[in-house]
Write a protein that binds this DNA or RNA. Structure first.
Lengths: 290, 290
DNA sequence: CGAATAGTGTCTGTAAGACACTATTCC
DNA sequence: GGAATAGTGTCTTACAGACACTATTCG
Protein backbone atom coordinates (compact mmCIF):
# COMPACT_ATOMS: atom_id res chain seq x y z
CA UNK A 1 0.00 0.00 0.00
CA UNK A 2 0.93 3.58 -0.26
CA UNK A 3 1.50 4.10 3.42
CA UNK A 4 5.03 2.72 3.47
CA UNK A 5 6.15 4.77 0.55
CA UNK A 6 7.41 7.93 2.19
CA UNK A 7 9.76 6.12 4.54
CA UNK A 8 10.98 3.76 1.91
CA UNK A 9 11.60 6.25 -0.79
CA UNK A 10 14.70 7.97 0.50
CA UNK A 11 16.44 4.79 1.52
CA UNK A 12 15.54 3.06 -1.67
CA UNK A 13 16.72 5.68 -4.06
CA UNK A 14 20.34 4.61 -4.05
CA UNK A 15 19.59 0.94 -4.17
CA UNK A 16 16.97 1.44 -6.79
CA UNK A 17 19.31 3.37 -8.95
CA UNK A 18 21.86 0.56 -9.04
CA UNK A 19 19.18 -2.01 -9.53
CA UNK A 20 17.63 0.07 -12.21
CA UNK A 21 20.81 0.63 -14.12
CA UNK A 22 21.97 -2.95 -13.76
CA UNK A 23 18.71 -4.27 -15.06
CA UNK A 24 19.14 -2.61 -18.40
CA UNK A 25 21.64 -3.44 -21.04
CA UNK A 26 23.69 -0.28 -21.44
CA UNK A 27 23.20 -0.53 -25.17
CA UNK A 28 19.53 -0.03 -24.51
CA UNK A 29 20.53 3.46 -23.40
CA UNK A 30 21.34 5.05 -26.72
CA UNK A 31 23.33 8.23 -26.74
CA UNK A 32 20.34 10.46 -26.67
CA UNK A 33 20.40 14.20 -26.39
CA UNK A 34 17.64 16.56 -25.34
CA UNK A 35 17.49 20.04 -26.79
CA UNK A 36 15.06 22.92 -26.72
CA UNK A 37 14.18 24.94 -29.80
CA UNK A 38 12.28 28.19 -29.74
CA UNK A 39 9.82 29.58 -32.24
CA UNK A 40 9.92 33.26 -31.27
CA UNK A 41 7.34 35.37 -33.05
CA UNK A 42 6.96 39.11 -33.19
CA UNK A 43 5.43 41.69 -35.46
CA UNK A 44 7.86 44.06 -37.15
CA UNK A 45 7.18 46.40 -40.03
CA UNK A 46 3.65 45.10 -40.26
CA UNK A 47 4.79 41.55 -40.90
CA UNK A 48 4.89 38.44 -38.75
CA UNK A 49 8.53 37.66 -38.12
CA UNK A 50 10.38 34.76 -36.55
CA UNK A 51 13.77 34.80 -34.88
CA UNK A 52 16.34 32.75 -36.77
CA UNK A 53 20.04 32.14 -36.29
CA UNK A 54 22.56 31.25 -38.93
CA UNK A 55 24.45 28.08 -38.17
CA UNK A 56 28.20 28.48 -37.93
CA UNK A 57 29.03 24.77 -38.02
CA UNK A 58 27.96 21.78 -40.06
CA UNK A 59 25.60 20.08 -40.45
CA UNK A 60 23.46 22.62 -42.23
CA UNK A 61 26.31 25.11 -42.04
CA UNK A 62 25.23 28.62 -43.11
CA UNK A 63 21.62 27.52 -43.04
CA UNK A 64 19.13 29.33 -40.89
CA UNK A 65 17.67 27.55 -37.90
CA UNK A 66 15.51 28.17 -34.89
CA UNK A 67 17.41 29.28 -31.80
CA UNK A 68 17.93 26.42 -29.40
CA UNK A 69 20.43 24.15 -27.76
CA UNK A 70 21.10 21.43 -25.30
CA UNK A 71 19.46 21.35 -21.94
CA UNK A 72 22.28 22.23 -19.62
CA UNK A 73 23.34 21.04 -16.28
CA UNK A 74 24.46 24.12 -14.42
CA UNK A 75 27.11 23.95 -11.73
CA UNK A 76 25.63 24.30 -8.25
CA UNK A 77 27.01 24.60 -4.74
CA UNK A 78 29.40 21.95 -3.40
CA UNK A 79 29.95 20.12 -6.63
CA UNK A 80 26.28 19.47 -7.12
CA UNK A 81 24.51 20.38 -10.28
CA UNK A 82 21.45 22.50 -10.68
CA UNK A 83 19.46 21.22 -13.55
CA UNK A 84 17.54 23.47 -15.82
CA UNK A 85 13.85 23.19 -16.27
CA UNK A 86 12.89 22.89 -19.92
CA UNK A 87 11.11 26.24 -20.00
CA UNK A 88 14.11 27.89 -18.35
CA UNK A 89 16.36 26.44 -21.01
CA UNK A 90 14.08 27.81 -23.70
CA UNK A 91 14.07 31.26 -22.12
CA UNK A 92 17.86 31.17 -21.89
CA UNK A 93 18.33 30.20 -25.51
CA UNK A 94 15.99 32.99 -26.52
CA UNK A 95 17.78 35.57 -24.39
CA UNK A 96 21.13 34.59 -25.87
CA UNK A 97 20.05 35.76 -29.30
CA UNK A 98 18.01 38.78 -28.37
CA UNK A 99 19.80 40.35 -25.46
CA UNK A 100 18.17 41.33 -22.20
CA UNK A 101 15.85 43.82 -23.80
CA UNK A 102 13.37 41.30 -25.09
CA UNK A 103 10.24 41.35 -23.05
CA UNK A 104 8.88 37.92 -23.71
CA UNK A 105 5.21 38.26 -23.09
CA UNK A 106 4.44 34.60 -23.42
CA UNK A 107 6.35 31.32 -23.51
CA UNK A 108 4.64 27.98 -23.89
CA UNK A 109 5.60 24.49 -24.84
CA UNK A 110 4.78 23.66 -28.42
CA UNK A 111 5.60 20.03 -29.12
CA UNK A 112 8.42 17.53 -28.98
CA UNK A 113 10.18 16.22 -32.04
CA UNK A 114 12.11 13.00 -31.73
CA UNK A 115 11.99 11.16 -35.02
CA UNK A 116 15.22 9.20 -35.51
CA UNK A 117 17.41 10.80 -38.13
CA UNK A 118 16.13 14.34 -37.71
CA UNK A 119 19.66 15.22 -36.67
CA UNK A 120 22.30 13.43 -38.76
CA UNK A 121 24.80 13.30 -35.90
CA UNK A 122 22.88 11.48 -33.22
CA UNK A 123 19.50 10.84 -31.76
CA UNK A 124 18.16 14.20 -30.66
CA UNK A 125 14.84 14.73 -28.95
CA UNK A 126 13.92 18.36 -29.21
CA UNK A 127 11.32 20.08 -27.06
CA UNK A 128 10.02 23.06 -29.00
CA UNK A 129 8.73 26.20 -27.32
CA UNK A 130 6.65 29.04 -28.68
CA UNK A 131 7.38 32.62 -27.61
CA UNK A 132 5.59 35.88 -28.34
CA UNK A 133 6.90 39.37 -27.89
CA UNK A 134 5.95 42.90 -28.89
CA UNK A 135 7.96 44.66 -31.54
CA UNK A 136 11.66 44.32 -30.76
CA UNK A 137 14.96 45.89 -31.78
CA UNK A 138 17.41 43.96 -33.91
CA UNK A 139 18.54 40.54 -32.77
CA UNK A 140 22.06 40.04 -31.47
CA UNK A 141 23.79 36.87 -32.51
CA UNK A 142 24.80 34.82 -29.48
CA UNK A 143 28.12 33.11 -29.06
CA UNK A 144 27.22 29.99 -30.99
CA UNK A 145 25.65 31.61 -34.03
CA UNK A 146 27.10 33.39 -37.01
CA UNK A 147 24.13 35.67 -37.23
CA UNK A 148 20.71 36.19 -35.71
CA UNK A 149 17.85 37.97 -37.39
CA UNK A 150 14.15 38.55 -37.31
CA UNK A 151 12.86 37.17 -40.60
CA UNK A 152 9.37 37.60 -42.07
CA UNK A 153 7.74 34.20 -42.10
CA UNK A 154 6.28 35.00 -45.51
CA UNK A 155 9.79 35.07 -46.94
CA UNK A 156 10.47 31.49 -45.91
CA UNK A 157 8.26 29.97 -48.56
CA UNK A 158 6.30 27.77 -46.23
CA UNK A 159 3.43 26.36 -48.20
CA UNK A 160 0.90 28.66 -46.66
CA UNK A 161 -1.02 30.92 -48.94
CA UNK A 162 -2.38 33.09 -46.17
CA UNK A 163 0.90 34.34 -44.84
CA UNK A 164 1.83 35.78 -48.19
CA UNK A 165 -1.54 37.28 -48.85
CA UNK A 166 -1.01 40.57 -47.06
CA UNK A 167 2.70 40.88 -47.64
CA UNK A 168 2.84 42.72 -50.89
CA UNK A 169 5.69 44.90 -49.70
CA UNK A 170 8.48 44.52 -52.24
CA UNK A 171 11.16 44.71 -49.58
CA UNK A 172 9.60 42.01 -47.47
CA UNK A 173 11.38 39.21 -49.21
CA UNK A 174 14.89 39.67 -48.03
CA UNK A 175 17.46 38.18 -50.36
CA UNK A 176 19.25 35.29 -48.78
CA UNK A 177 16.56 34.35 -46.37
CA UNK A 178 14.36 32.31 -48.64
CA UNK A 179 16.26 29.11 -48.10
CA UNK A 180 15.29 25.92 -46.44
CA UNK A 181 15.61 25.84 -42.69
CA UNK A 182 17.97 23.39 -40.99
CA UNK A 183 16.80 20.01 -39.70
CA UNK A 184 13.02 19.77 -39.41
CA UNK A 185 12.74 23.36 -38.31
CA UNK A 186 10.40 24.28 -41.14
CA UNK A 187 7.95 21.79 -39.77
CA UNK A 188 8.39 23.07 -36.23
CA UNK A 189 7.85 26.64 -37.39
CA UNK A 190 4.74 25.62 -39.29
CA UNK A 191 3.38 23.93 -36.18
CA UNK A 192 4.16 27.04 -34.16
CA UNK A 193 2.35 29.27 -36.61
CA UNK A 194 -0.67 27.00 -36.53
CA UNK A 195 -0.71 27.14 -32.78
CA UNK A 196 -0.36 30.91 -32.69
CA UNK A 197 -3.15 31.43 -35.23
CA UNK A 198 -5.39 29.12 -33.32
CA UNK A 199 -4.69 30.67 -29.94
CA UNK A 200 -5.60 34.12 -31.18
CA UNK A 201 -9.12 32.82 -31.49
CA UNK A 202 -9.82 31.80 -27.94
CA UNK A 203 -7.15 33.45 -25.78
CA UNK A 204 -6.02 37.06 -25.29
CA UNK A 205 -2.72 36.13 -26.95
CA UNK A 206 -2.90 39.08 -29.34
CA UNK A 207 -2.22 41.45 -26.45
CA UNK A 208 1.21 39.81 -26.10
CA UNK A 209 2.19 41.32 -29.46
CA UNK A 210 1.48 44.94 -28.55
CA UNK A 211 2.90 47.26 -25.92
CA UNK A 212 0.96 48.39 -22.93
CA UNK A 213 -1.35 51.20 -24.00
CA UNK A 214 -2.70 50.08 -27.34
CA UNK A 215 -5.58 50.92 -29.61
CA UNK A 216 -8.22 48.59 -30.96
CA UNK A 217 -6.77 49.17 -34.41
CA UNK A 218 -3.34 48.01 -33.28
CA UNK A 219 -4.94 44.89 -31.91
CA UNK A 220 -6.73 44.37 -35.19
CA UNK A 221 -3.46 44.68 -37.05
CA UNK A 222 -2.09 41.85 -34.93
CA UNK A 223 -4.97 39.62 -35.90
CA UNK A 224 -4.70 40.59 -39.54
CA UNK A 225 -0.97 40.02 -39.63
CA UNK A 226 -0.98 36.65 -37.89
CA UNK A 227 -4.02 35.35 -39.71
CA UNK A 228 -3.08 36.92 -43.01
CA UNK A 229 -6.59 38.20 -43.54
CA UNK A 230 -8.30 41.57 -43.61
CA UNK A 231 -10.89 42.04 -40.90
CA UNK A 232 -13.83 44.38 -40.89
CA UNK A 233 -12.74 47.33 -38.71
CA UNK A 234 -16.18 48.18 -37.39
CA UNK A 235 -17.25 44.66 -36.53
CA UNK A 236 -13.87 43.88 -35.01
CA UNK A 237 -14.07 46.95 -32.81
CA UNK A 238 -17.47 46.06 -31.42
CA UNK A 239 -16.50 42.42 -30.98
CA UNK A 240 -13.34 43.12 -29.00
CA UNK A 241 -15.21 45.38 -26.61
CA UNK A 242 -17.96 42.79 -26.21
CA UNK A 243 -15.62 40.07 -24.94
CA UNK A 244 -15.45 40.42 -21.17
CA UNK A 245 -11.93 40.82 -19.82
CA UNK A 246 -10.16 41.07 -23.17
CA UNK A 247 -9.18 44.74 -22.83
CA UNK A 248 -9.61 47.42 -20.20
CA UNK A 249 -9.88 51.09 -21.06
CA UNK A 250 -7.12 53.30 -19.70
CA UNK A 251 -9.33 56.36 -20.07
CA UNK A 252 -6.70 58.04 -22.22
CA UNK A 253 -6.58 58.68 -25.92
CA UNK A 254 -3.78 58.82 -28.46
CA UNK A 255 -2.08 62.22 -28.72
CA UNK A 256 -2.80 62.46 -32.41
CA UNK A 257 -4.75 60.70 -35.08
CA UNK A 258 -3.35 58.16 -37.48
CA UNK A 259 -0.62 59.12 -39.93
CA UNK A 260 -3.06 58.88 -42.78
CA UNK A 261 -5.82 60.81 -41.08
CA UNK A 262 -8.70 59.85 -38.85
CA UNK A 263 -9.69 60.78 -35.34
CA UNK A 264 -7.72 60.01 -32.20
CA UNK A 265 -8.54 56.68 -30.64
CA UNK A 266 -9.07 55.42 -27.12
CA UNK A 267 -6.31 53.48 -25.39
CA UNK A 268 -6.60 50.08 -23.74
CA UNK A 269 -4.52 47.63 -21.72
CA UNK A 270 -4.85 43.83 -21.53
CA UNK A 271 -7.74 42.61 -19.42
CA UNK A 272 -7.77 39.72 -17.00
CA UNK A 273 -9.48 37.13 -19.17
CA UNK A 274 -7.61 33.89 -19.76
CA UNK A 275 -10.13 32.53 -22.21
CA UNK A 276 -12.24 34.51 -24.65
CA UNK A 277 -15.95 34.10 -24.74
CA UNK A 278 -17.33 34.48 -27.22
CA UNK A 279 -14.26 33.53 -29.21
CA UNK A 280 -12.92 35.60 -32.08
CA UNK A 281 -13.13 33.04 -34.85
CA UNK A 282 -11.24 33.30 -38.08
CA UNK A 283 -13.53 34.12 -40.98
CA UNK A 284 -11.94 31.98 -43.65
CA UNK A 285 -10.76 28.83 -41.96
CA UNK A 286 -11.85 26.22 -44.42
CA UNK A 287 -14.82 24.86 -42.60
CA UNK A 288 -14.75 21.24 -41.55
CA UNK A 289 -11.53 20.23 -43.23
CA UNK A 290 -12.13 16.79 -44.63
CA UNK B 1 20.14 26.68 -32.48
CA UNK B 2 19.06 23.54 -31.39
CA UNK B 3 20.76 20.49 -32.19
CA UNK B 4 23.86 22.41 -32.94
CA UNK B 5 25.94 25.32 -32.06
CA UNK B 6 29.49 25.58 -30.98
CA UNK B 7 28.65 23.11 -28.29
CA UNK B 8 28.25 20.78 -31.21
CA UNK B 9 31.82 19.66 -30.80
CA UNK B 10 31.31 19.21 -27.12
CA UNK B 11 28.16 17.28 -27.78
CA UNK B 12 29.90 14.92 -30.13
CA UNK B 13 32.65 14.38 -27.64
CA UNK B 14 30.16 13.74 -24.92
CA UNK B 15 28.22 11.34 -27.07
CA UNK B 16 31.29 9.40 -28.06
CA UNK B 17 32.44 9.35 -24.50
CA UNK B 18 29.16 7.93 -23.37
CA UNK B 19 29.20 5.27 -26.00
CA UNK B 20 32.68 4.25 -25.01
CA UNK B 21 32.13 4.21 -21.30
CA UNK B 22 28.85 2.45 -21.64
CA UNK B 23 30.50 -0.89 -22.10
CA UNK B 24 32.29 -0.53 -18.79
CA UNK B 25 30.26 1.51 -16.40
CA UNK B 26 26.62 2.20 -16.98
CA UNK B 27 26.68 4.90 -14.35
CA UNK B 28 28.97 7.02 -16.49
CA UNK B 29 26.11 7.86 -18.78
CA UNK B 30 24.92 11.42 -18.89
CA UNK B 31 22.20 11.44 -16.28
CA UNK B 32 19.40 12.24 -18.66
CA UNK B 33 16.85 9.77 -19.87
CA UNK B 34 13.91 10.09 -22.24
CA UNK B 35 10.75 8.16 -21.55
CA UNK B 36 7.27 8.04 -22.97
CA UNK B 37 4.18 7.88 -20.79
CA UNK B 38 0.72 7.16 -22.09
CA UNK B 39 -2.60 8.50 -20.90
CA UNK B 40 -4.93 5.86 -22.37
CA UNK B 41 -8.59 6.68 -22.00
CA UNK B 42 -11.62 4.55 -22.62
CA UNK B 43 -15.22 4.38 -21.51
CA UNK B 44 -16.17 1.32 -19.48
CA UNK B 45 -19.32 0.79 -17.45
CA UNK B 46 -20.46 4.28 -18.29
CA UNK B 47 -17.40 5.87 -16.71
CA UNK B 48 -14.29 7.46 -18.14
CA UNK B 49 -11.40 5.17 -17.28
CA UNK B 50 -7.66 5.42 -17.57
CA UNK B 51 -5.14 2.61 -17.93
CA UNK B 52 -2.82 2.39 -14.92
CA UNK B 53 -0.08 -0.04 -13.98
CA UNK B 54 1.08 -0.87 -10.51
CA UNK B 55 4.77 -0.33 -10.08
CA UNK B 56 6.70 -3.41 -9.08
CA UNK B 57 9.90 -1.59 -8.16
CA UNK B 58 10.79 1.48 -6.13
CA UNK B 59 10.54 4.39 -6.30
CA UNK B 60 6.80 4.62 -5.80
CA UNK B 61 6.68 0.85 -5.39
CA UNK B 62 3.10 -0.45 -5.31
CA UNK B 63 1.84 2.92 -6.47
CA UNK B 64 -0.19 3.21 -9.61
CA UNK B 65 1.35 4.97 -12.56
CA UNK B 66 0.73 5.67 -16.20
CA UNK B 67 2.12 3.00 -18.51
CA UNK B 68 5.38 4.09 -19.99
CA UNK B 69 9.05 3.43 -20.27
CA UNK B 70 12.31 4.29 -21.86
CA UNK B 71 12.66 4.99 -25.52
CA UNK B 72 14.42 1.94 -26.83
CA UNK B 73 17.01 1.27 -29.41
CA UNK B 74 15.96 -1.85 -31.22
CA UNK B 75 18.48 -4.23 -32.79
CA UNK B 76 18.51 -3.93 -36.53
CA UNK B 77 20.26 -5.79 -39.37
CA UNK B 78 24.05 -6.20 -39.36
CA UNK B 79 24.67 -4.85 -35.89
CA UNK B 80 22.96 -1.59 -36.65
CA UNK B 81 20.21 -0.26 -34.49
CA UNK B 82 16.78 0.83 -35.48
CA UNK B 83 15.66 3.64 -33.30
CA UNK B 84 12.13 3.99 -32.21
CA UNK B 85 10.08 7.01 -33.05
CA UNK B 86 8.46 8.52 -29.99
CA UNK B 87 4.95 7.66 -31.12
CA UNK B 88 6.03 4.08 -31.82
CA UNK B 89 7.44 3.83 -28.33
CA UNK B 90 4.17 5.07 -26.90
CA UNK B 91 2.19 2.54 -28.93
CA UNK B 92 4.50 -0.23 -27.78
CA UNK B 93 4.19 0.68 -24.11
CA UNK B 94 0.44 0.75 -24.49
CA UNK B 95 0.33 -2.63 -26.25
CA UNK B 96 2.44 -4.21 -23.52
CA UNK B 97 -0.27 -3.59 -20.96
CA UNK B 98 -3.33 -4.21 -23.05
CA UNK B 99 -2.44 -7.05 -25.33
CA UNK B 100 -2.90 -7.04 -29.08
CA UNK B 101 -6.64 -6.68 -28.86
CA UNK B 102 -6.67 -3.00 -28.14
CA UNK B 103 -7.75 -1.06 -31.14
CA UNK B 104 -6.26 2.30 -30.45
CA UNK B 105 -8.39 4.67 -32.40
CA UNK B 106 -6.25 7.70 -31.75
CA UNK B 107 -2.77 8.43 -30.45
CA UNK B 108 -1.42 11.95 -30.17
CA UNK B 109 1.36 13.69 -28.36
CA UNK B 110 0.23 15.45 -25.23
CA UNK B 111 3.11 17.33 -23.69
CA UNK B 112 6.62 16.87 -22.39
CA UNK B 113 7.50 16.94 -18.73
CA UNK B 114 11.10 17.58 -17.78
CA UNK B 115 11.20 19.41 -14.47
CA UNK B 116 14.32 18.38 -12.55
CA UNK B 117 13.45 16.15 -9.63
CA UNK B 118 10.26 14.71 -11.07
CA UNK B 119 11.98 11.34 -10.92
CA UNK B 120 14.06 10.87 -7.74
CA UNK B 121 16.57 8.63 -9.49
CA UNK B 122 17.82 10.79 -12.31
CA UNK B 123 16.90 13.49 -14.75
CA UNK B 124 14.05 12.11 -16.80
CA UNK B 125 12.37 13.94 -19.64
CA UNK B 126 9.07 12.30 -20.34
CA UNK B 127 7.10 12.74 -23.52
CA UNK B 128 3.46 12.07 -22.71
CA UNK B 129 1.01 10.68 -25.25
CA UNK B 130 -2.75 10.59 -25.22
CA UNK B 131 -4.60 7.52 -26.53
CA UNK B 132 -8.28 6.84 -27.03
CA UNK B 133 -9.96 3.50 -27.55
CA UNK B 134 -13.46 2.08 -27.56
CA UNK B 135 -14.55 -0.11 -24.69
CA UNK B 136 -11.90 -2.75 -24.04
CA UNK B 137 -11.53 -6.03 -22.16
CA UNK B 138 -9.44 -6.23 -19.03
CA UNK B 139 -5.87 -5.04 -19.12
CA UNK B 140 -2.99 -7.50 -18.96
CA UNK B 141 -0.02 -6.51 -16.85
CA UNK B 142 3.18 -6.40 -18.90
CA UNK B 143 6.53 -7.70 -17.79
CA UNK B 144 7.59 -4.69 -15.75
CA UNK B 145 4.32 -4.14 -13.91
CA UNK B 146 2.77 -5.94 -10.97
CA UNK B 147 -0.70 -5.21 -12.23
CA UNK B 148 -2.50 -3.28 -14.93
CA UNK B 149 -6.04 -2.06 -14.68
CA UNK B 150 -8.56 0.31 -16.17
CA UNK B 151 -9.45 2.70 -13.37
CA UNK B 152 -12.29 5.27 -13.34
CA UNK B 153 -10.70 8.69 -13.34
CA UNK B 154 -13.34 9.83 -10.85
CA UNK B 155 -11.90 7.42 -8.29
CA UNK B 156 -8.50 9.07 -8.41
CA UNK B 157 -9.57 12.15 -6.52
CA UNK B 158 -8.24 14.64 -9.00
CA UNK B 159 -9.47 18.04 -8.00
CA UNK B 160 -12.05 18.19 -10.72
CA UNK B 161 -15.65 18.53 -9.71
CA UNK B 162 -17.02 17.65 -13.09
CA UNK B 163 -15.58 14.16 -13.33
CA UNK B 164 -17.34 13.13 -10.17
CA UNK B 165 -20.60 14.79 -11.04
CA UNK B 166 -22.12 11.93 -12.98
CA UNK B 167 -20.42 9.11 -11.15
CA UNK B 168 -22.86 8.44 -8.36
CA UNK B 169 -22.52 4.71 -8.81
CA UNK B 170 -21.55 3.30 -5.43
CA UNK B 171 -19.29 0.68 -6.97
CA UNK B 172 -17.41 3.19 -9.05
CA UNK B 173 -14.90 3.98 -6.36
CA UNK B 174 -12.88 0.84 -6.27
CA UNK B 175 -11.16 0.30 -2.95
CA UNK B 176 -7.44 0.59 -3.22
CA UNK B 177 -7.38 2.74 -6.29
CA UNK B 178 -7.90 6.10 -4.67
CA UNK B 179 -4.26 6.69 -3.97
CA UNK B 180 -1.86 9.22 -5.30
CA UNK B 181 -0.28 8.42 -8.63
CA UNK B 182 3.48 7.97 -8.94
CA UNK B 183 5.78 10.83 -9.97
CA UNK B 184 3.89 13.75 -11.53
CA UNK B 185 1.47 11.42 -13.26
CA UNK B 186 -1.56 13.02 -11.63
CA UNK B 187 -0.63 16.23 -13.35
CA UNK B 188 -0.06 14.48 -16.66
CA UNK B 189 -3.41 12.75 -16.38
CA UNK B 190 -5.12 16.03 -15.58
CA UNK B 191 -3.54 17.61 -18.64
CA UNK B 192 -4.67 14.66 -20.74
CA UNK B 193 -8.22 14.97 -19.51
CA UNK B 194 -8.24 18.67 -20.28
CA UNK B 195 -7.03 17.97 -23.78
CA UNK B 196 -9.58 15.24 -24.35
CA UNK B 197 -12.45 17.39 -23.11
CA UNK B 198 -11.35 20.22 -25.28
CA UNK B 199 -10.89 18.12 -28.41
CA UNK B 200 -14.40 16.76 -28.16
CA UNK B 201 -15.56 20.26 -28.92
CA UNK B 202 -13.95 20.82 -32.27
CA UNK B 203 -12.87 17.40 -33.56
CA UNK B 204 -14.71 14.14 -34.21
CA UNK B 205 -12.73 12.58 -31.34
CA UNK B 206 -15.86 11.20 -29.69
CA UNK B 207 -16.21 8.66 -32.48
CA UNK B 208 -12.91 7.13 -31.30
CA UNK B 209 -14.64 6.00 -28.12
CA UNK B 210 -17.41 4.02 -29.80
CA UNK B 211 -17.37 0.99 -32.09
CA UNK B 212 -18.27 1.16 -35.73
CA UNK B 213 -22.03 1.25 -36.02
CA UNK B 214 -23.14 3.55 -33.25
CA UNK B 215 -26.23 5.52 -32.34
CA UNK B 216 -26.50 9.21 -31.65
CA UNK B 217 -27.31 8.34 -28.05
CA UNK B 218 -24.08 6.38 -27.68
CA UNK B 219 -22.22 9.37 -29.01
CA UNK B 220 -24.02 11.59 -26.57
CA UNK B 221 -23.04 9.30 -23.71
CA UNK B 222 -19.41 9.76 -24.72
CA UNK B 223 -19.75 13.51 -24.49
CA UNK B 224 -21.62 13.30 -21.20
CA UNK B 225 -19.09 10.92 -19.69
CA UNK B 226 -16.00 12.84 -20.74
CA UNK B 227 -17.41 16.24 -19.94
CA UNK B 228 -19.22 15.10 -16.83
CA UNK B 229 -22.36 16.95 -17.82
CA UNK B 230 -25.83 16.02 -18.91
CA UNK B 231 -26.72 17.16 -22.41
CA UNK B 232 -30.13 17.81 -23.86
CA UNK B 233 -30.90 14.70 -25.96
CA UNK B 234 -33.03 16.45 -28.53
CA UNK B 235 -30.76 19.39 -29.14
CA UNK B 236 -27.69 17.15 -29.20
CA UNK B 237 -29.29 14.92 -31.79
CA UNK B 238 -30.08 17.78 -34.12
CA UNK B 239 -26.71 19.36 -33.60
CA UNK B 240 -24.71 16.24 -34.40
CA UNK B 241 -26.60 15.72 -37.64
CA UNK B 242 -26.13 19.38 -38.57
CA UNK B 243 -22.33 19.21 -38.46
CA UNK B 244 -21.15 18.20 -41.92
CA UNK B 245 -18.94 15.12 -41.95
CA UNK B 246 -19.30 14.20 -38.29
CA UNK B 247 -21.34 11.06 -38.84
CA UNK B 248 -22.64 9.15 -41.87
CA UNK B 249 -25.80 7.11 -41.76
CA UNK B 250 -25.38 3.39 -42.40
CA UNK B 251 -29.02 3.08 -43.33
CA UNK B 252 -29.51 0.41 -40.68
CA UNK B 253 -31.23 0.56 -37.31
CA UNK B 254 -30.62 -1.17 -34.02
CA UNK B 255 -32.24 -4.59 -33.69
CA UNK B 256 -34.12 -3.60 -30.57
CA UNK B 257 -34.86 -0.54 -28.52
CA UNK B 258 -33.00 0.52 -25.41
CA UNK B 259 -33.00 -1.69 -22.33
CA UNK B 260 -35.25 0.74 -20.55
CA UNK B 261 -37.64 1.23 -23.41
CA UNK B 262 -37.80 3.58 -26.31
CA UNK B 263 -37.85 3.10 -30.06
CA UNK B 264 -35.05 1.60 -32.14
CA UNK B 265 -32.55 4.11 -33.37
CA UNK B 266 -30.67 4.73 -36.58
CA UNK B 267 -27.05 3.65 -36.88
CA UNK B 268 -24.12 5.80 -37.96
CA UNK B 269 -20.41 5.53 -38.67
CA UNK B 270 -17.73 8.21 -38.35
CA UNK B 271 -17.74 10.79 -41.13
CA UNK B 272 -14.75 12.26 -42.89
CA UNK B 273 -14.58 15.59 -41.08
CA UNK B 274 -11.32 16.41 -39.34
CA UNK B 275 -12.63 19.58 -37.76
CA UNK B 276 -16.15 20.26 -36.60
CA UNK B 277 -18.01 23.29 -37.80
CA UNK B 278 -19.98 24.48 -36.08
CA UNK B 279 -18.22 23.18 -32.98
CA UNK B 280 -20.00 21.34 -30.19
CA UNK B 281 -19.21 23.65 -27.32
CA UNK B 282 -19.47 22.63 -23.69
CA UNK B 283 -22.43 24.30 -22.02
CA UNK B 284 -20.89 24.97 -18.62
CA UNK B 285 -17.31 25.84 -19.23
CA UNK B 286 -16.90 28.78 -16.93
CA UNK B 287 -16.96 31.52 -19.45
CA UNK B 288 -13.88 33.69 -19.78
CA UNK B 289 -11.91 32.24 -16.90
CA UNK B 290 -10.18 35.15 -15.26
C1' DC C 1 -11.09 70.21 -48.98
C1' DG C 2 -10.46 65.19 -49.74
C1' DA C 3 -9.06 60.95 -47.87
C1' DA C 4 -8.66 57.94 -44.23
C1' DT C 5 -9.98 56.36 -39.77
C1' DA C 6 -12.62 55.68 -34.94
C1' DG C 7 -16.60 54.34 -33.44
C1' DT C 8 -21.74 53.39 -33.60
C1' DG C 9 -26.35 51.91 -35.55
C1' DT C 10 -29.00 48.60 -37.85
C1' DC C 11 -30.38 44.61 -40.36
C1' DT C 12 -30.04 39.64 -41.71
C1' DG C 13 -28.78 34.84 -41.41
C1' DT C 14 -27.16 31.25 -38.45
C1' DA C 15 -26.84 28.74 -34.46
C1' DA C 16 -27.68 27.41 -29.42
C1' DG C 17 -30.75 26.40 -25.83
C1' DA C 18 -35.42 25.77 -23.84
C1' DC C 19 -39.58 23.52 -24.30
C1' DA C 20 -43.08 20.77 -26.32
C1' DC C 21 -44.67 16.90 -28.81
C1' DT C 22 -45.18 12.33 -31.35
C1' DA C 23 -44.02 7.70 -32.15
C1' DT C 24 -41.90 3.58 -30.65
C1' DT C 25 -40.33 0.07 -27.63
C1' DC C 26 -39.34 -2.33 -22.99
C1' DC C 27 -41.14 -4.04 -18.68
C1' DG D 1 -50.56 0.56 -19.34
C1' DG D 2 -46.58 3.23 -17.69
C1' DA D 3 -42.00 4.69 -18.32
C1' DA D 4 -38.25 5.72 -21.03
C1' DT D 5 -36.31 6.96 -25.39
C1' DA D 6 -35.64 8.51 -30.68
C1' DG D 7 -36.40 12.06 -33.31
C1' DT D 8 -38.74 16.49 -34.84
C1' DG D 9 -40.98 21.20 -34.45
C1' DT D 10 -40.87 25.77 -32.74
C1' DC D 11 -39.66 29.81 -30.27
C1' DT D 12 -36.28 33.00 -28.10
C1' DT D 13 -31.90 34.83 -27.61
C1' DA D 14 -27.10 35.58 -28.95
C1' DC D 15 -23.91 36.52 -32.20
C1' DA D 16 -21.31 37.09 -36.78
C1' DG D 17 -21.10 39.61 -40.86
C1' DA D 18 -22.67 43.18 -44.15
C1' DC D 19 -23.65 47.81 -44.81
C1' DA D 20 -24.37 52.48 -43.67
C1' DC D 21 -23.34 56.59 -41.28
C1' DT D 22 -21.18 60.36 -38.31
C1' DA D 23 -17.39 62.64 -36.35
C1' DT D 24 -12.63 63.55 -36.33
C1' DT D 25 -8.05 64.24 -37.92
C1' DC D 26 -4.06 64.37 -41.41
C1' DG D 27 -2.04 66.18 -45.54
Amino acid sequence: MADTESTEAAADVRAAECEFLAAYDPRAFPPLAVTVDVVALTIRDGALQVLLVQRAEPPYQHHWALPGGFVRQLPGPKGTTIEEDLAEAAARELAEETGPRLRTAHLEQLQTYGTPGRDPRMRVVSVAYLAFAPEMPEAEPGSDAADAQWVPVASLGLTDARTDALTDTPGARQPGTSRTLAFDHARILADGLDRARSKLEYTPLATAFVTEPFTISELREVYETVWGERLHPGNFHRKVLSVPGLVDSTGDMTQSGGSRGGPRSKLYRPGDAKLLHPALLRPSREEAVR
